[in-house]
Design a protein around this nucleic acid. Structure first.
Lengths: 234, 234
DNA sequence: AATTCCATTTTGTGTAGACTTTATGTATTT
DNA sequence: AAATACATAAAGTCTACACAAAATGGAATT
């Protein structure tokens, strides 16, 4: 047999399965019929059922184990997918005009806390860059970044007065692994000045560590202006 | 031909493609060979190549368009997947003992800001629940939640003195859609008391709105104790 | 009673081939 | 020059089948 327009597609199956979970027909922890049985029910091949169930498992609705079968997850460990936008894109998407400004750029020996955080060797040298991102001249984000020189030797020749370190890195170094952390921090005097808020105000903060094949490449702290909200739907 | 142990698998292909992107062999915006050509190169079927490329596109490395082919994304819009854990799981995973305490529970008419936020009808009634989550008797999270009674009528009979509203909802109502927001807020007197921090301290906050087939179900604000970090790797 | 071993079940992944859908670039027409 | 039509290329999906790998539950053994 071959594909015709009235075939049940993997998308149809996904929908139907979700319906059954939502309607309570398949309760949490319940065992689903196996792929072969579902294939018969939906009059399609096991391959098609497999794709549907595999994607639903990937999306966090189902749990699948060989021999054990497929179950409805009791506490749907649904995953929020944050697309971390580039600052420029985020500002422009909100209708602002993006402006970048370098605050400082210097090479130095990695401070102790950074050595510990990135598991650097002692006295390893880093490029320290601080810069501002504005949306139509309103402070949007203050970025405090360290780049490991041994991992990106070209950085010693880089000039961040007109291009941001993130843009430069994205163009220059691929990366393999990222650790992203969100937290709330308190504006100290310096930060308050840059972001135009009062000292002591809460500041939404993101930290990002990037590795290339196990080697630490860069650590960045990004402090967002007052009222910033990081949002996603799923 | 059939599958043998020396076959190139879709995982191998994913790795190889990533290598080529990282090494710069396939620059951003570059057009990849088409599936048929790659199938020949990797001595496998187009189906296998398709799965590899499809997943890489899904993970944000590639862009695929029919007829136009497959390209390397210039600004890798990599997506962070946050698995939003249940509070209890999060506390227990960190080695703490979970304890729950109800602060208040009452039905009321939805306040204006909530009516606006959830697009409720005027004077729609909601259940307002406030509660605390402790990790070994240390405040971990203060939860401030509203549940739309029309969407979950059973909630009027619910007793949240021993089970948290989130646990109850997960067991009772499936959901279709979630909006999740992270922000930094400032501890007011009440919050400072619950979380055992000074007034004015920054508090990492998550807001969560849940819908069931277009109907708003619940709005929750979750205030985390000092020092909380929401972290993910990808 | 506990442990080890193993057949069996169920998902995981691959091959081979075909049809479907989309959209691009070119040719044609206006 | 602009708009339209169209052949075609490339990804998208399905069928049908096969073998692989994991893990469960029970049988056999200690």
């Amino acid at each position: 047999m071959t594909q015709t327009s009235d075939t049940t597609s993997y998308k149809d199956i996904k929908q139907t399965v979700l319906q059954r979970i939502r309607s309570g027909e398949w309760q949490p922890d319940a065992l689903l019929p196996n792929e072969q049985e579902l294939a018969v029910e939906f009059s399609c091949t096991r391959t098609t059922v497999n794709r549907a169930l595999r994607e639903l498992a990937d999306e966090g609705f189902l749990e699948r184990r060989r021999k054990a079968g497929t179950r409805v997850l009791s506490a749907p460990q649904r995953q929020a997918r944050f697309t971390i936008p580039l600052v420029r894109d985020e500002i422009e998407a909100a209708g602002g005009t993006y402006r970048y400004a370098l605050v400082s750029q210097e090479t130095q020996t990695a401070p102790d806390w950074l050595t510990a955080r990135l598991a650097l060797r002692v006295d390893q040298r880093v490029m320290h860059v601080r810069c501002m991102h504005f949306s139509t001249n309103t402070p949007f984000q203050f970025e405090d970044r360290w780049i490991v020189i041994d991992s990106v030797p070209q950085v010693e020749q880089a000039d961040f007065s007109s291009i941001g370190p993130n843009d430069w890195l994205v163009q220059t170094v691929p990366f393999t692994n990222v650790e992203l952390t969100f937290l709330a921090s308190r504006a100290d005097a310096t930060l308050a000045g840059f972001l135009d808020v009062s000292e002591g105000e809460p500041v939404f903060t993101a930290e990002r560590i990037t590795w290339l094949q196990g080697q630490p490449v860069t650590f960045a702290k990004m402090y967002f202006a007052a009222g910033y909200r990081m949002s996603t739907e799923f």
